[in-house]
Every structure is written in structure tokens, then in C-alpha cells.
Nucleic acid binder design. Structure first.
Lengths: 225, 225
DNA sequence: AACTGATTGAAACGCCTGTTTGAATCGGGC
DNA sequence: GCCCGATTCAAACAGGCGTTTCAATCAGTT
């Protein structure tokens, strides 16, 4: 074997699928990137679909190493939420080629699930979801399951929006304004927005409130003052 | 002319593009749905791309009628935000075939912008963005432009997540749990989450807070108790 | 050196795509 | 009736796709 074509194919396929999605990617282009022949993908993987599944599996395996890198289990839940959000936002915006490709693959799976997405949910997305959920549970022990789900989706939705709607958002507010929304600003914004919504931190903007806008606080807020 | 093939083509193309996106849609399938010949699309519109642009334009024209349907300009800003969010969520989840197709088209443009997306931003998304922004400005006069943008994205992100990540979310928490997250619950959740983050309403969950978690509330929160 | 099984390479197959072609059809003005 | 421009139709074209085929090549064994 001429220096493991299989690995080179996997790497090339990872890039190609991340860039163009399953449909958009072509085995010809993948073969070319891997510097090998068109038939190699069929010889080593059977067909395009099986190659894609192997890529997803490998991406997941590689990704799951850094799952618990930011787990300061002893830290304040609010701080752990901040760290989680920050790590997530960095992952979405980051420039690390490897992680970026894997995130792109997972995001594509979210939008157009293939047969391989069950596995992805079970082994990659699921654990992250559970972790965020448990942090939120510590922060708001009173919340039931349904509320916890909605809270997780509120956070994840805020973050992923910057990935999904990037092109439109940029045209919407202008390139310069969009550039100012960098990783630090966004992480801090989403963390403060969320923590304020949970009543753990003060509102995100100094509400020198027109006063009449304020709706009388609920019973819990009364207790806490 | 045998009863305006052009209109039938537009309608068929609207469905097809909404379902499968620009790449996924085929002119053959569109022609078949319209009950006409393959060459008709080329005769009436030139090519597939021009047909797509016309579909987007028509969808926008049709959509912009109900832009200001829920504008109770006199109502409380918080109530108008609630109404806005509710309308948005309904639009995303709704069963109205027409609106649904148009939303789907716009969402697809968000993800994979074509040449036609500039127009879409300028004429369809832009005005909605501006309206939400102005509501938020009334609620938080102290927020600067950057903060306002981030706030808009936080709200829109929460809502659209239910569209984008639907498939994955369903597998994540189970079909039954996901079904419980209906339009009313989601609308209410996002509205309360947001208004709490802005300090206009009390926190979203009754924080029978472990107390030590509470970070000293801001000045406005103190006033409200 | 000769054989063998694994791997690679160039070419072709069959299918589907958007687009084009040229003949057939229709409705209305002379 | 006849013609003419507009419209429809079946058929074909050119290109890209995933997949298959089969001969050529290589490493290791005998």
C-alpha cells in the first residue's frame, strides 16, 4: 500500500463533506484531494454513504476527547455555565481547522439528518446536551424537565444562530458592525443574557427603567431582596 | 394560452424550492407538478435560476402584506414584544401552507444565500429586523447599537433554533417531550426568558434560590421589590 | 524467478441533471 | 380559408454524478 490511502481518503472526505455537505460533495473531488484514484473510495469503503458514516464516526471519536476539558466541577454553576457557553461559542467561531470541520459536519447533520444522525445524537450531541442541562438544573432546581429543555434550547439557539444565520446577519447589520460581534462579546452577551433571565445576575443592560415599564416582580424575587 | 402555465409553474416551483432547496429541486419535477412540459420553465423564465428569483420575489410580495398585522402601536412595549415573538413562532411552526412555504424559502436563503438573498434582506427580513430592534430600543433605551443587535440575535436565534434543529432536538429529548413544546409554550418561554433577561419581568423560573447563588441584583431590581 | 493476493489506475456504464431544439398546436387578425 | 406569432410538446444534447469493470502494479511467499 502506498502510504495508507484510506487515511488520506478519510481526511479529504472530512474536509469535503464539511464544506459541501453529503449531497454537494463528490467522490471525484474527494479522490482528487486525497491524491488517489476515483475507484479507491469504492474499494476501501464500499460506497459514498459508508465513507460518510466513517467520517462522522471518526470526527466524533476525535471530538469526544475535549468534551470534559472545561469541567471545573467545583466551580460556581454560573461560572461553569459561562465556561460552557464560551467553549461552545469558540467552537462555533473558532479557527482550529480540525474542530471546525467536525463542528461543520455536526451542524450539517442537524439541518439535514442522514441515517448517521442517530449515532451522532447518541454519542456526541447527547452528552453535551446532558451536561448543559445539569448545569442549568443546579442553577434552577425548581425548573421541571420541560423548562430545562426549553432553557437548553434557548442557550444553544442563541449560539448556533451566529453560525446558521451568519451570511444574512452580516448583510443585515453591515460587515463592520458584524465584525464587532466577536467571540468575546458574543460569549459574554449570551452568558449575561441567560444568567439574567434565570435571575442569577442582574439584567443585561442597565435599565434606568422608565419605571412604568417594570412589571411587579414575582414572589421569589421578593424573597431574594 | 392554456390557463396560465406561468402561474402554475410559479406555484409548483414555490413548493418544490421550499421543500428541497435550490439545488435539490429539479425543473423536471416542477414541470410535472405544474402539469406542463419540461421546456415550459425555460420558455417562460429563461432558466432555473431566474425562476427561483421570481419565486422569491413573489413570496416576499405575498408575505409583506401581513407584516404589520400585529402592530398595536399603543400597547405596552413588553406586550408588543410578546406579540412579535408569538407571531414569529407561529410563523415558524404554523400550518398555513402559504406562509409556511415562504418561511421555508427564506430560511433556506439564510443558510445558503444565493444571489437573490440581498433582495430578500432588503425587502423582507430587514423591515422585520428593524421592528424588533425598535421594540427592544423602547424596552432598553440604555442599550447601544451593538447590544441591540446582539439582543435581536438572541431572540431570533432562540426562535429559529426550533426550526433548524428540529430533527436533532426531537431525537435528543424524545418525540413525546418534544411534542409538549408546542407553539404556546415556546412563545411564552422565549418571551419570559427575554423579558427577564432585560429586567422587565421576574426570572423565568421561581428561583427558590440556594441564596448563595444570587449575585447582588442591579439597582432597578432593587427598586422593583 | 514465478506465483498470489491486495491495491491502484484508466476507462466506461447508466442515470439524472439543466438546457436546447425543432416540429406540432393553438388563438386571433386578414 | 389562411397565415402568424405565441405557446406547448417530445426528443435529444452535453455534462456531472456514483458506481463498476478489468487490466496493471506492487509486496510478500515459495
Amino acid at each position: 500500500m502506498e502510504f495508507d490511502t484510506k487515511k488520506r481518503l478519510l481526511a479529504a472526505a472530512s474536509e469535503e463533506f464539511a464544506e459541501k455537505g453529503f449531497e454537494g460533495a463528490t467522490v471525484r473531488s474527494i479522490s482528487y484531494r486525497a491524491g488517489t484514484n476515483l475507484a479507491a473510495v469504492n474499494y476501501h469503503f464500499g460506497d459514498k454513504t459508508k465513507l460518510y458514516e466513517e467520517v462522522l464516526l471518526e470526527a466524533h471519536r476525535c471530538e469526544s476527547f475535549d468534551l470534559d476539558e472545561e469541567t471545573h466541577a467545583d466551580a460556581h454553576p454560573a461560572e461553569r455555565l459561562r465556561a460552557y457557553i464560551r467553549g461552545f461559542v469558540f467552537g462555533v467561531f473558532g479557527t482550529d481547522a480540525h474542530r471546525n470541520r467536525h463542528r461543520a459536519l455536526m451542524l450539517r447533520e442537524m439541518l439535514e439528518p442522514t441515517s448517521a444522525s442517530d449515532l451522532l445524537v447518541r454519542e456526541a450531541i447527547g452528552p453535551r446536551f446532558a451536561r448543559l442541562r445539569s448545569i442549568l438544573h443546579e442553577l434552577t432546581p425548581a425548573a421541571d424537565d420541560q423548562r430545562l429543555h426549553a432553557l437548553v434550547f434557548s442557550i444553544v439557539g442563541q449560539i448556533l444562530h451566529y453560525k446558521f444565520a451568519r451570511a444574512i446577519s452580516e448583510r443585515l447589520i453591515g460587515a463592520e458592525a458584524y465584525a464587532r460581534l466577536d467571540v468575546d462579546y458574543i460569549s459574554d452577551h449570551i452568558a449575561r443574557f441567560t444568567l439574567a433571565a434565570l435571575g442569577v445576575e442582574p439584567p443585561i443592560v442597565a435599565t434606568e427603567t422608565p419605571d412604568d415599564l417594570l412589571i411587579p416582580a414575582g414572589p421569589s424575587a421578593e424573597e431574594s431582596s
